[in-house]
Design a protein around this nucleic acid. Structure first.
Length: 602
DNA sequence: CTAGGGTTAG
């Protein structure tokens, strides 16, 4: 054979002209087919396959001894349609695909091609090759065909072709398609799992919003003595953030620290966010302050954390420090600062930041910022100012912006404006049940029962159902969920008795039911009953039963706090001398001594 | 061939 060493000094190949020149030189020296040179030429051509595929194909077609491996870099770089043509060339030489061919072509293959490759793979016996088979499973799953993937998966099992990657591919792929329960079935049957498998299941549950299930899997992993890594930590922390359960958050954080997992900036930010969203800003602050390096997102999380807890002064102070430390804010920072101002009633500060948003902060105001301003004015009762923001904004207001004004109308009882916007907002977002409920509440508060009925009828016609209220409370590390009006809890009778007792005790101290949000045209005295069954009251009653006197009661709920629960909780905090922290859909309420941190605007 | 994590008005 020819050369043992590449004779021409490898000149850098940067243009196709250089490559042609180099190639011709190699041809003259009889070195063009030398594996090293041929691979180098093909690697260059693979960088722009759309332009150079014919060239590459010629090179391969004239190669005296084309090895399948020469094709693989090209396959990896090709769009699927060209990959198919190159495969055809390969087969025509004739040259069989090798172990890298299918894994290289399949990931980007659209369905018809994937199916053809499936047939070829069977014909050539690659269904005994785990990597090829796994690539096929991934391709079917990427094309949203869990049926085809599952069939290939099941038929491969008796052959013993499956490995841990095959199983993990199924778990992750099914999760991505929203088939998280099916994924769990596969996961439970896995003969062997690695950290990737565990994380696929945990993060799959997180993506599906099934945070407690995610944490169950995480616990199972630890119970088996499996050491985690940064991926698992991230997923578990985010699961706690979603669940809003501080006890879980503490535990996962402690586990991260004990297990020696390296906490990088992103993971640290996730932890800060977790403590904020689990109701413990103080702990978020401790973690935040201890960080040697804070990224923009870290600042944003902390400022946003203060914002949702109604601590506008702290948010603004932190923003000032961020500025002094030379960290340039972005659009999210400004949204968080404006939210902080609006949740704390700091109208003039909010206006100030908004007015200087471009020249001082270098941020182009977007829809979100206008929404914040509408919310800022609207919450403060300056509905005409809010309306002016909408009239003068440079883009068409979206549902969110109008929704902010609508929400303000509800707070301040402006039925006329609220109704006008309410119908419009519902038409813009007809599947959002909360908006119907808000409009119905507004109309009900004005005693307009026939219009309330119209709203309810519209919901029926469109098959939009009112989301059931759910409240989660943790007691002794146990998580209990209460659903509005549901009797499923094992201690239901006791809880209801406690709830009734609780209500009569605060009633004796001056609490009166606020029935404005009750959507039935019934006699006043009959309206009180359904209010008692709101999930939040049941959860608080349960908390009073099961926690020690003086313990903070923490509740996370899926909807906004209703006015009656808000009022009742204020009384409970005073009468039972408890701090009660409620995370609702939008923000946190800290109830203490008969007052709430939201100052009754939420 | 299998996994990723942070912030955003209502």
């Amino acid at each position: 054979m020819t050369a043992t060493a590449p004779t021409p000094t490898p000149i850098p190949l940067t243009t196709i002209a250089e490559l042609r020149q180099h190639h011709s030189q190699l041809v003259r020296l009889g070195l063009a087919s030398h594996p090293t040179h041929a691979r180098r030429l093909l690697a260059f051509l693979a960088r722009d396959p759309a332009a150079h595929l014919p060239y590459a194909a010629r090179l391969l077609a004239h190669h005296p001894d084309p090895h399948p491996a020469l094709f693989n870099p090209l396959f990896a770089a090709l769009p699927p349609c060209h990959a198919a043509r190159l495969l055809a060339l390969m087969l025509s030489l004739p040259l069989p695909p090798d172990h890298f061919t299918f894994p290289r072509i399949l990931p980007a293959a659209p369905l018809p091609l994937a199916a053809q490759l499936h047939a070829l793979l069977l014909k050539l016996g690659f269904h005994y090759h785990a990597q090829s088979l796994n690539a096929l499973l991934a391709a079917y799953l990427a094309n949203a065909r869990p049926d085809l993937a599952s069939r290939a998966f099941r038929t491969a099992a008796p052959r013993g072709t499956l490995d841990v990657v095959s199983w993990t591919t199924m778990v992750g792929g099914l999760c991505k398609l929203g088939l998280v329960d099916e994924a769990r079935e596969v996961f439970d049957e896995m003969p062997e799992r690695n950290l990737i498998s565990w994380n696929a299941m945990i993060s799959g549950y997180v993506k599906a919003g099934r945070f407690l299930d995610a944490l169950d899997v995480f616990d199972e992993m630890r119970a088996l003595g499996v050491q985690g890594n940064g991926f698992i930590a991230a997923s578990a922390v985010v699961a706690c953030t979603g669940a809003g359960t501080l006890a879980h958050g503490w535990e996962v954080h402690r586990w991260v620290e004990q297990s020696g997992i390296k906490v990088d900036e992103k993971l640290a930010t996730a932890v800060v966010d977790m403590y904020c969203k689990c109701g413990c800003v103080e702990e978020a602050w401790r973690v935040f302050e201890a960080l040697p390096v804070k990224g923009l997102t870290t600042w944003n999380c902390m400022i946003g954390g203060f914002a949702v807890h109604g601590r506008g002064r702290d948010a603004v102070r932190l923003f000032g420090r961020m500025e002094r430390e030379g960290v340039a804010p972005d659009d999210v920072t400004l949204v968080n600062v404006l939210t902080a101002c609006s949740h704390a009633g700091m109208v003039s500060e909010g206006r100030h930041y908004f007015n200087h948003i471009v020249e001082r902060y270098g941020v182009e105001p977007k829809m979100e910022h206008y929404g914040c301003m509408v919310d800022l004015y609207g919450r403060a009762g300056m509905l005409d100012e809010a309306q002016k923001v909408i009239d003068n904004m440079p883009m068409e207001p979206d549902v969110g912006v109008l929704g902010a004004l609508f929400g303000a109308c509800r707070i301040h009882g402006d039925v006329d404006l609220g109704e006008a916007i309410g119908w419009r907002v519902i038409e813009l977002d007809p599947q959002n049940s909360g908006r119907y409920v808000l409009l119905a509440n507004l109309l009900a508060s004005a005693g307009r029962w026939e219009d309330v009925a119209r709203v309810r009828q519209l919901m029926d016609e469109r098959n939009v159902s009112k989301e059931a209220g759910r409240s989660v409370i943790e007691v002794d590390g146990e998580v209990c969920e209460f659903q509005c009006g549901s009797l499923h809890h094992p201690q239901a009778a006791e809880v209801y008795a406690m709830a009734r007792d609780m209500m009569s005790r605060i009633g004796a101290e001056g609490y009166a039911p606020d029935t404005r949000d009750v959507l039935h045209d019934v006699a006043e005295e009959e309206k009180d009953a359904p209010l008692l069954y709101h999930s939040e009251k049941l959860a608080i009653a349960f908390g009073l039963l099961r926690t020690r006197p003086g313990d903070t009661i923490r509740i996370t709920k899926n909807l906004r706090v209703c006015r009656d629960c808000h009022e009742a909780t204020k009384f409970v905090s005073r009468v039972f001398e408890r701090e009660i922290v409620v995370r609702d859909r939008n923000r946190f309420h800290h109830f203490k001594d008969g007052k709430c941190s939201c100052n009754d605007y939420w």
